[in-house]
Structure formats: C-alpha cells, structure tokens
C-alpha cells in the first residue's frame, strides 16, 4: 500500500496558484526527495498534507484513507508528522519538556494521570545528538543547529512512522549533518517513510530512493535522483541552466 497518495492537488491564494494539479505517490518505507527552487511551493505542499492549509481541490490519501477532512492532530495520530523550516520550539521549556510535548498522547486523562517516560525522552534526545547535560537547558538558550535537532526530536516523539522533513540540514555543522543522516538511515532501516526537502542535495542524495521536482507548484519530473536532475526543465528552473 502507498503511504501517501496525492491526487490533483491545487492550492490558490487569491490569484496566485501555489500548488498546481500536483499528483505523486509515496510508497510505505520509501524515502522521497522533493526538490525545487525557492518559492516553488514545497512547504505549501507539506502544510496541505498536514492539514495546516486547506487545499482548494484535490485529494490526499494516507494509508488508503482520504484525510482531507481531518484536523492536524488527527492526522498526526494516524502516523504522519512534519518538521518546520523555521524551528518552532517552546522557548521557556527545557529540551526534555519540548520532547515530552511531542510524546504526549492526545488525551486529557492520559496527560493528567499517565506517567512521564523519562527513559524514552532521553532516548529520543540522544538519538538526535543531544548530550545529557543539554536535557534541562531551556530551548531559548539553544543555537540554531540544536533547535533543528530539537524540532526533529519532537517530531519523532509523536510516534509517526511517516515523516515530512523540511530543511533538516540547514544551519547544521558537517558533524551534525552526518549524525542526522545516520539517524535517518537508521530509521529507514526500521521501516520509516520519508518525504524530505533540502537545499543540500549532496547530503540528501544518499538518503532518498526517488525524487520529484516541482516549480511554481507544478510537477516537473518524477524518478530516480539522477534522472530528475538530468531533466532539462529541472535544470532550467532549479540550476539556472538553459
């Protein structure tokens, strides 16, 4: 079964068409790279898949079920979650508490009477590369790279098996990129499904099975990473080559 099937997705803002009749599939366990120049509408696609923006028309099917009518939390409960290009931490909460919010089940009863799983919090924090000494620091003290790791950790904590990653490598050092890449490879081995956006094509290449390219919300190419980059239209729009 496909994890995600996007069919004829259209999003208009007034006169501007941000997503133009976009269709693509994402198989379960697959890792798909979404590439395109700035302003191509990549983040808008993510927002529609997560229900933060309502599409103008078209369908979004997740695990065989149309999810367009569901709220964001309901979609996350079904197992899909995203990171944001600009990290959105809870600044006054510690690293551990930020992850805790991601781990919480969406039930008041469980939130009040359930127990805090500190071991799981530690595990997630360590998996994205936080040291034990970082765990009680407030997010307001973290540098950009750490905020991005925290964003990834909170998204992982939701328990989703299909992850949409928006520029997870931006602002990270080479060492941090290697660490996140290793984590993604590990998660792929454990059956996670990815849809990722990154400007760092060399870092992304080994992490994806397939790529699609869009420009102005329109699909230009769909295929292997090499084929997509070799596509003339993609070269023209993305790499500025005529």
């Amino acid at each position: 079964m496909n994890a995600l099937e996007i069919r004829n997705l259209v999003k208009r803002f007034g006169g501007l068409t941000a997503t133009n009749d976009l269709s693509f599939d994402l198989a379960q366990g697959e890792s798909l790279g979404l590439i395109g120049p700035n302003g191509a509408g990549k983040t808008t696609v993510f927002s529609q898949i997560m229900g933060e923006l309502k599409q103008t028309s078209g369908t979004i099917t997740f695990m065989g079920r149309e999810i367009s009518g569901l709220s964001t939390p309901d979609r996350i409960a079904r197992g899909i979650s995203r990171t944001y290009q600009v990290p959105r931490p809870f600044t006054d909460l510690s690293v551990r508490e930020n992850i805790r919010v991601g781990l919480m089940p969406d039930s008041l009863r469980a939130m009040i009477f359930g127990t805090v799983d500190r071991a799981r919090e530690d595990e997630i924090a360590h998996s994205v590369g936080f040291a034990t000494t970082d765990l009680d620091r407030p997010a307001s003290e973290l540098a950009m790279g750490d905020l991005r790791k925290l964003e990834f950790a909170r998204t992982l904590a939701t328990g989703a098996k299909v992850l949409l990653l928006d520029e997870v490598f931006a602002g990270l050092t080479t060492g941090e990129i290697a660490m996140i890449a290793e984590l993604i490879q590990d998660l792929r081995g454990r059956g996670f499904t990815f849809l990722m956006v990154s400007h760092d094509l060399p870092a992304m290449e080994p992490l994806i099975d397939r790529a699609i390219a869009i420009e102005r919300g329109t699909l230009l190419a769909d295929g292997s990473f090499k084929d997509v980059l070799a596509n003339a239209e993609v070269r023209a729009s993305y790499l500025g080559e005529a």
Partner: peptide, 10 residues
C-alpha cells in the same frame, strides 16, 4: 509559547 507547535505535536 507556540500554539501551532502544540498542534504540530499532535
């Protein structure tokens, strides 16, 4: 601190 992120955490 960030209502959108809370929704984004499910």
């Amino acid at each position: 601190q960030n209502e959108e992120s809370v929704r984004g955490s499910g």
